[in-house]
Design a protein around this nucleic acid. Sequence first.
DNA 1: TTATAAAGTGTATATATTTGCAAAGTAAAT
DNA 2: ATTTACTTTGCAAATATATACACTTTATAA
Lengths: 159, 159
Amino acid sequence: MQKTKRLLAIEKLIAEEIITSQDGLLKKLKGKGIICTQATLSRNLRQLGVSRVPDGTGGYRYSLTENKRLSPDSGIKLNIVPVIREIVEAKGLMVIRTIPGNANATAYYIDNAGRYEIAGTIAGDDTILVIPRDDITLQQVHTCLELVLPGLHKQIKKK
Amino acid sequence: MQKTKRLLAIEKLIAEEIITSQDGLLKKLKGKGIICTQATLSRNLRQLGVSRVPDGTGGYRYSLTENKRLSPDSGIKLNIVPVIREIVEAKGLMVIRTIPGNANATAYYIDNAGRYEIAGTIAGDDTILVIPRDDITLQQVHTCLELVLPGLHKQIKKK
DNA sequence: TTATAAAGTGTATATATTTGCAAAGTAAAT
DNA sequence: ATTTACTTTGCAAATATATACACTTTATAA
């Protein structure tokens, strides 16, 4: 998916470099072969929860939320995906089945992504219940999870 | 001081209400009898370190820094001021004399204000050394301390 | 006090960000 | 494959925010 790739690249850039404007970000992305318009970045930054903060010296810079600032370890993410077996939707909730014993770790990971869309999770041994907030569609939750666990959509057979 | 009053009012409003634009803030302030222009707010918000963050539902709101979000207890602030006896400047540093035994508590308070201007503090029994960052003038530190401890300027005899 | 320097402010303008809308792209269902 | 519903995007325009400059106020020094 084109968008997911861009979102991840944006997060990485903001975590590692000092981005002071959307136009600046636009150029950095272009340097990495990712082309879009500033309008798209505006929308993406909002979706990612990126805020604009004074840098203390007279300028501004973009900054990730508290949760994401911690570990920019983009390596771990992909390793969690293979433990997921299936995703089932029911009653506006989402049930994720993992291989046995892996539900808790995965749920913990999802919780710590600090996504607005997800009100919370409950995990057993191989099952996670994901509870979306009011007015959040399951499709939005899918998109959101794809961000948290890139590559998810390839692993799972939905419904 | 006119500006200090406005800065404190801005912080309070942002801590207690949802402010989504500078124009909105402008009107709230007007409601409290504080008049200025949007341009001034733009400058003030930057000085206060206020950031603009996505609220997760499609909009943006202004938000105080982590430190300031914690206690909006505007009551305590004034009580600390009377313990300060004198402020002396030397070698680009600032030395604050308090009544005996009160240096640590006061320094702790200053530290926790999370001001960019102040690199750090060291406190003894009745003496605090305030170390400003490079390129920060002592005047800026004064202004900054006045924010942290409103009313300071009335209590102390400088130099 | 008066003179001098520094900080603060408003106005108008420049710059940056957001958004309505139509088009293009994607995914799901038939 | 085709239709249908939904998401994503660019463009252009609207909105929001930042700043240069001139002026005013406030602080500092003599």
